[in-house]
Structures are given as structure tokens and as C-alpha cells.
Design a protein around this nucleic acid. Structure first.
Length: 736
RNA sequence: GGGGGUGUGGCGGAACGGCAGACGCGGCGGUCUCAAACACCGCUGACCGCAAGGUCGUGUGGGUUCGAGUCCCACCACCCCCACCA
């Protein structure tokens, strides 16, 4: 705020200064950067100008901007200013992640359409962001709930659909009984709905999935391409993808009719498999027991498992229950018949939904064997342990193979390879890689989301894409937004009933909407063409700006949003729609601002409203304080006294500058000019050192609080010297 | 159970192998005021000392180094992520 003409007043008056400059920035569109794609204009892409795409995660417009937003956007703003002053062309856009449950729940409570609630909230947040003085390019503003935007969300969905990367299939999915919708695996925390906390149920439903598992390997490998991401986030993504090497092994039923594959990370222990387990949801269960005396007991067990909550069933302490099917499968390596049980600790959506149980070397299998009187066999013996030594507790299996036919005496690693090769030769299995990552379940039975643009043909065409030239499929008007176990869209019969785009016969529109994480998986691309009607974006422009040079947001998105966005960009890259395969070159994850030791929330009553602080102390004070609170990556506790301390600092800066003759009056002196004045020369050296430190702290270290400290030291020193010295000068705090 | 991270004054934290505690909050003292609050100026790790000064000090125990808050090993405590994942 220290540049340009301004009235020199005796007291620092942030309200007047800030309002004045915000008006100037607005009038001059001060932070607009080209190129941006526009209809009917060829994009003019600079050949070589240094660019910086600085991006903060877009806000969800649930009500007001909160302190977390202030911290997030202040950091981004500092980086943006810093890059501008280092000579880069800076792109710093803003938008709103505007579909989703909170607006819809408000609509259900008040009857007001979610679009109106959302647009009002957006206007409110925009006003707050402007008051905070962020250097945002307001020309690029987007909201994911507007048809202009979701037109292209639908268009992108159809590109996935054409490639078989979006598919509707039946699966056991997580159902939230309160929100009355299915949830992505990533939105279930400890068996509870991430949003409302109610226990999640497993339901067998036909749902839309994006095949993110096809990209599991690349999502892992391409982490190499990321320049600077927090190790923590990379680790979290690695764990989430959960790559494990192992083998797929075929077990045939004793009558030879069915071949049931299993996945195991320990093919070397195959000779120790003494029984075989199916998940209750396994599609073969019903057929295997049909017409058998065990049938009733098995089907009872299956339906009991279905009624069980995911949290309960997922609990490690859950007893190892199960029921015998009366059937057997043949172990391919030794021809032995082993009994088939159904057990709810086997998960349908990991591996193949069936496992070979090796109780000698797996804790869970051993617990099951003990509970049901099944045999336990040692097949791995550590050094000095006898092959016949009894198993007391499941052993991880370091050592050499015993009781294991052709692999006897081999060390574990060699045995793994030998078994995989043996199986492969005989067509009964092969070495393979398993992932923990599940496909991304994107359908939601809720109103306020992007409609999935397909038609269910009532003749024989199946699921048919809505043609591109009929997009967007507009979200229909409905009377009742409340979820009733099916999408509220289904209630608008007039909208649902349509014609099949392929055969012209009767058809019904898909009534599920998309997970809002789909919307936010590509918004950073749309900023390059925010108003373009003819396309989602243009290759030259998107390739100029992307990848994002610095992305900043909350660590709570370490898996969900950041994994989905990486997946999206890889698909778009494969489709030739973009020329890069990672969206975010550098990532910074910020810590939370807490109050009274807890996350700020209305229900706790510990919210500190940014507006109040701006009213009382000014936007610059607030911005300074949120950065000064501590390392930006850490959580930090709000302190009213602390923020006042930053105001005192700005008062001191003001007095210093006014004392020197006011802003614009101070020239940066040359070395010659201070040659005869040791105090001034010392202060000047100090100033240069401060500039170097601030540059380093902001540019490389993301250490804003130490940058501010350095400036405070300088100001303290200059204040002490102002009586006799002639130098105050530029301190670098313009970047703040 | 697996993985990642963090331990420094009354508090937030600084110190990227070289004077530990910068900067800020709080506290104490002073100036201003009839007075208080605000503001401003100064002091503020602990212990001993009237002082000059000294001793101790970065979770615990070892090690490497001329030199360790920082590097290595073990332990203790706390935080985060994942977790019946075969």
C-alpha cells in the first residue's frame, strides 16, 4: 500500500487506504493476465515470457469466508505479488466449488432453491475477498454450478464414457442413510460418512464409476514428475493407492465347474493354504450352495453380513465369524481339496473377493482357524526352527520353505518367484500387482450436482450418451429437494422422459448427479477459458499456463481432490486434450487456524469472523497476522492480542515512513550517498540483507512468518535510528 | 498392526553443523495522565551474585565432530494418515 500517490495523514487509517486502492485495482483490472481463450479470437500465446500460475484451492461457498480462507488466499497472494515483482506474468484466478450438499440441505430446510442460496453466498464471499485486497484476476471468475461450467463437466464425462473410463455397474457401495446417497470410498472415514458422521451401510446398487484404478500405476510413477510436494502428501497418496506385488492363483471347485481366482502377496505359502474363504458378497456364493443342505445357513449369514454396518464389520476386533458352504476347492500346487467358507472379514472390493487362508502365517486366518477348528500348517521356518514346530502365533514368515513340495528349502523371495512361474506355466495363475485403490464412485442420489448426461434407452440401445451438441443437460426444476433414496431429479417425470439419441425411441434420462469432486477435478483448466462457449479450453492457452506453478490448500485434500485432479489430467493428456500429465507442479498444504484449541465452527461458538478484524484493525493487519502466527504448514491458535501486535507493527511502519517525509518521498539511496554516515550505511546493509532474506523466505522456503520477523527487525532498527539517520527505505513488505 | 512427522523460555516460535531463544504474545519497570486504559520507551530462559560476572540449559541415554537444538543409534512422549487390504 506504499506505492503511488496518496494523502499523507498523521494516523494510519487502513479503512480509507484500503478502500481507495481496491477501487483503483477494480477500475484498472489491475491483476488481469493474458492469454485467456475467448470466443472468436485467436489466442495470442507469448513465446517465452516467464509465467507463474499461482492457485489456491477454490472455496466452497457455504456461507462466509473463514480464517482458513484468509490464510490460504493471503499466502497465494503473497506468492503472486512476489512472482510479479520478480518479473513473471502471473495468473491468479478465483472461482467457487458451488455444487454440493450444504446448499442443498439449506434448500431443504428453507425451501429456497439451492441455486439462489449459492449465488447469494458467492456474492458475499466475493465481497469479502475484495475487501481483503487479494490480487485476483476477477475476469476469470467461475462457479461450477453454472451451466456455462457444467456444460463442460458433462462434455468431459462423455469423453471418459467413450473410452470406457466411465461406466455404470452394480457393486457393493457405501450408502449414507442420513444423506440418502452413496459415497465414494474416499468419503468414508472409519465406516462413517465423512459429511454427517452417520454409520455407512453397504448396499448392492448400480452406480457410475470412473476407472481410476486403470491409472493406479501412473498415479504412483508420475510422482517423480512433481517438483515440490510435501512428503506427507505423497506418502498418503502412495498408501492410498496401496500397491502390492503378489500373484493371482486359480482354485477350481471340486466338481471342476468354477474357477475362482484369489490374490495373494504370499504365493510362497500356497502349500500352507488349509481352507478357502469367500466374501459374503461374492457372486458365486449363491450358486455354490444352491440345493445343498448348507444353503439356508449360508444365505442367512450373507444377509446378516449385509445388515451389518461397515464400521462394525471393519473393526479389527470383530470376531472371525463364518459359515461352511459344504463345498471344496482344489489347491493347484498339490491337488489337495480344501473347504470353502464364507467369512465377512473377506472384502469384496479388494483383490478378487476370495482368499486362500494360510493360518500358519496370517494372524487373521489363524484366528479364523482357531474359531472354527480348521487345521494349521507351518510352511515357513525361520532359521533354527524345526519344520514340525507348532505354530503358536501367526508368523510373518521369514526363513525357508518347509512342507512345501517343489519349493522346500527355498528362501521366501525365491519361493514367491518359483510359485508364480510354476502357476504361469500351467495356466493356473501369474505374478500380478494388487492395489488398494478402488474405482471412483461418482454417482450421487442428490439434487444439487451436475447431471450425468446419458439416456437409458427403453428399446435395446442400453445407455446412450447425450450428443455433444445437446449439452448441457440442464439441471431440472423440482419441487422437493429432499433425498428419498433416489435422486430428486427422478421426481420430474417430464424431464426424465426423453427420446433415445440413437434409435429415437423412448428413453429415460439418468437421474443421478455427479460427485462434486468431479467438478473440482478440472476447474484449474477452465480458468484459462472462463467464458469460452465453443470449447472447454484451447490447447495452446492451457498448455501455456499449466501446470500450475504453485498450488496451495488444506491438507484435508491430500487424497481426494489431489488424487482425482491428477487422474483427470492424465486421462485428458491421453486424449490429447492437454499437453501435460500432472496438474500441480508444486504443492503447499497449510495448517488450520484453531481457536480455544479446536477447529473454528459455529456449533463450538469459537469462530473469529474475518470481517470483524478487518473492520477493527484493517485487512493488512489481518493478512500479516495469519502469516505471522507460525509456520504456514502448521496448525496455529488464534490470539486477539497477537493480531493487535501486528497492527502495532503497521502503526510503527506508518510513523516511520511519515516521519521520513511520507510514502513516495523516500528514494533508495546509493552507496555513495551514505558513504560518510556509518549509521546510515549499516542500516542500508541491513536493508539489503533483509530483502535477501525475505526473497528467500517467500520464494523458496514458504516461510512467511520469518520473512515478517526479518522486516520487523529492520523496522525496529530503523525506528531507533530515525532521529539521526536519513534512511528508511523500501523494506520489502510490499509483497505482503 | 503398518506408514509419516514432531519434541527448544510462561505461550506461538527462531536458529538449513558455528554466540540457543530472533520476531511476536504475555509479564515487569518507566514516560504520558488527576487516575486508569491506550500508546510509546526499556527489561524479560533458569540458578548464584549488590555488581562485574559465573554455572546450568533444546524429551532421555549413547555416539560422530575442533564444535551438535541441528547428523547417527536406541529409548520415551505426543500428533497425523492408513488399517480385517489377504
Amino acid at each position: 500500500m506504499s506505492s503511488g500517490p496518496t494523502t499523507t495523514t498523521e494516523r494510519y487509517d487502513p479503512a480509507a487506504i484500503e478502500a481507495k486502492w481496491q477501487a483503483v485495482w477494480d477500475r484498472e483490472r489491475a491483476f488481469h493476465a493474458e492469454p485467456i481463450s475467448r470466443d472468436g479470437e485467436a489466442a495470442d500465446v507469448p513465446a517465452r515470457a516467464e509465467k507463474a500460475y499461482v492457485l489456491e484451492m477454490l472455496p466452497y461457498p457455504s456461507g462466509e469466508a473463514h480464517m482458513g480462507h484468509v490464510k490460504n488466499y493471503t499466502m497465494g497472494d503473497v506468492v503472486a505479488h512476489h512472482r510479479r515483482r520478480s518479473g513473471a506474468v502471473v495468473f491468479h484466478p478465483m472461482g467457487y466449488d458451488a455444487f454440493g450438499l450444504p446448499a442443498e440441505n439449506a434448500a431443504i430446510r428453507t425451501g429456497e432453491p439451492p441455486g439462489e442460496v449459492t449465488r447469494r453466498n458467492i456474492a458475499r464471499i466475493r465481497e469479502q475477498l475484495k475487501r481483503l485486497g487479494f490480487s485476483i484476476d476477477w475476469d476469470t471468475e467461475i462457479a461450477t454450478c453454472e451451466p456455462d461450467y457444467y456444460h463442460w463437466t458433462q462434455w468431459l464425462f462423455l469423453r471418459f464414457f467413450e473410452r470406457g473410463l466411465a461406466e455404470r455397474r452394480e457393486a457393493a457401495v457405501n450408502w449414507c442413510p442420513v444423506d440418502q446417497t452413496v459415497l465414494a470410498n474416499e468419503q468414508v472415514i472409519d465406516g462413517h460418512c465423512e459429511r454427517c458422521g452417520s454409520p455407512v451401510e453397504l448396499r448392492q446398487l448400480a452406480q457410475w464409476f470412473l476407472r481410476i484404478t486403470d491409472y493406479a500405476e501412473r498415479l504412483l510413477d508420475d510422482m517423480e514428475l512433481l517438483e515440490d510436494w510435501p512428503e506427507r502428501v505423497l506418502t498418503m497418496q502412495r498408501n492410498w493407492i496401496g500397491r502390492s506385488e503378489g500373484a493371482r492363483v486359480m482354485f477350481r471347485t471340486e466338481d471342476g465347474e468354477h474357477a475362482i481366482p484369489v490374490f495373494t502377496t504370499r504365493p510362497d505359502t500356497l502349500f500352507g493354504a488349509t481352507f478357502f474363504l469367500l466374501a459374503p458378497e461374492h457372486p458365486l456364493v449363491e450358486r455354490l450352495v444352491a440345493g445343498r443342505p448348507e444353503s439356508a445357513a449360508v444365505l442367512d449369514y450373507v444377509s446378516a453380513a449385509a445388515r451389518e454396518g461397515a464400521a462394525e464389520r471393519g473393526d479389527t476386533d470383530h470376531p472371525k465369524t463364518g459359515v461352511f458352504t459344504g463345498r471344496y476347492v482344489v489347491n493347484p500346487v498339490n491337488g489337495e481339496e480344501i473347504p470353502v467358507w464364507v467369512a465377512d472379514y473377506v472384502l469384496m472390493d479388494y483383490g478378487t473377493g476370495a482368499i486362500m487362508a494360510v493360518p500358519g502365517h496370517d494372524e487373521r486366518d489363524l484366528a479364523f482357524a482357531r474359531a472354527h477348528g480348521l487345521p494349521v500348517l507351518r510352511v515357513v521356518a525361520p532359521e533354527g526352527v524345526d519344520a514340525e514346530a507348532p505354530i503358536d502365533e501367526a508368523e510373518p514368515g521369514e526363513g525357508t520353505l518347509v512342507n512345501s513340495g517343489f519349493i522346500d528349502g527355498m528362501p521366501v523371495d525365491e519361493a514367491k518367484r518359483a510359485v508364480a512361474a510354476w502357476l504361469e506355466e500351467r495356466g493356473q495363475g501369474e505374478a500380478t500387482v494388487g492395489y488398494r485403490l478402488r474405482d471412483w464412485l461418482i454417482s450421487r442420489q442428490r439434487y444439487w450436482g451436475c447431471p450425468i448426461p446419458v439416456v437409458h434407452c427403453e428399446n435395446d440401445c442400453g445407455i446412450v450418451a447425450v450428443p455433444d451438441d445437446e449439452l448441457p443437460v440442464l439441471l431440472p426444476e423440482v419441487d422437493d429437494y429432499a433425498p428419498r433414496g433416489r435422486s430428486p431429479l427422478a421426481a420430474n417425470e417430464e424431464w426424465v422422459r426423453t427420446t433415445c439419441p440413437r434409435c429415437g425411441g423412448p428413453g429415460r434420462r439418468e437421474t443421478d448427479t455427479m460427485d462434486t469432486f468431479v467438478d473440482s477435478s478440472w476447474y484449474f483448466l477452465r480458468y484459462t477459458a472462463p467464458h469460452l462457449q465453443a470449447a472447454s479450453w484451447e490447447r495452446p492457452v492451457v498448455d501455456y499456463w499449466l501446470p500450475v506453478d504453485q498450488y496451495i490448500g488444506g491438507v484435508e485434500h491430500a487424497i481426494l481432490h489431489l488424487l482425482y485432479a491428477r487422474f483427470f489430467v492424465k486421462v485428458l493428456s491421453d486424449l490429447g486434450l492437454v499437453g501435460f500429465s500432472e496438474p500441480f507442479r508444486r504443492l503447499f498444504t497449510q495448517g488450520m487456524i484453531t481457536a480455544a484449541g479446536a477447529k473454528m465452527s459455529k456449533s463450538r461458538g469459537n469462530v473469529v469472523a474475518p470481517d470483524e478484524i478487518v473492520d477493527r484493525l484493517g485487512a493488512d493487519t489481518l493478512r500479516l497476522y495469519v502469516l505471522f502466527m507460525g509456520p504456514a504448514a502448521d496448525d496455529a491458535e488464534w490470539s486477539d492480542r497477537g493480531v493487535e501486535g501486528q497492527r502495532r507493527f503497521l502503526d510503527r511502519v506508518w510513523r516511520l515512513v511519515v516521519g521520513l517525509g511520507g510514502p513516495g518521498m523516500v528514494e533508495r539511496p546509493t552507496l555513495d550517498a551514505v558513504a560518510g554516515d556509518p549509521a546510515a550505511a549499516a542500516l542500508m546493509r541491513r536493508t539489503e540483507a533483509t530483502i535477501a532474506k525475505v526473497t528467500e523466505d517467500i520464494g523458496r522456503r514458504f516461510s512467511f512468518h520469518t520473512a515478517i520477523s526479518a522486516i520487523q527487525e529492520l523496522v525496529n532498527e530503523a525506528t531507533r535510528g530515525v532521529g539521526e539517520g536519513a534512511y528508511g527505505g523500501e523494506t520489502g513488505e510490499r509483497a505482503l
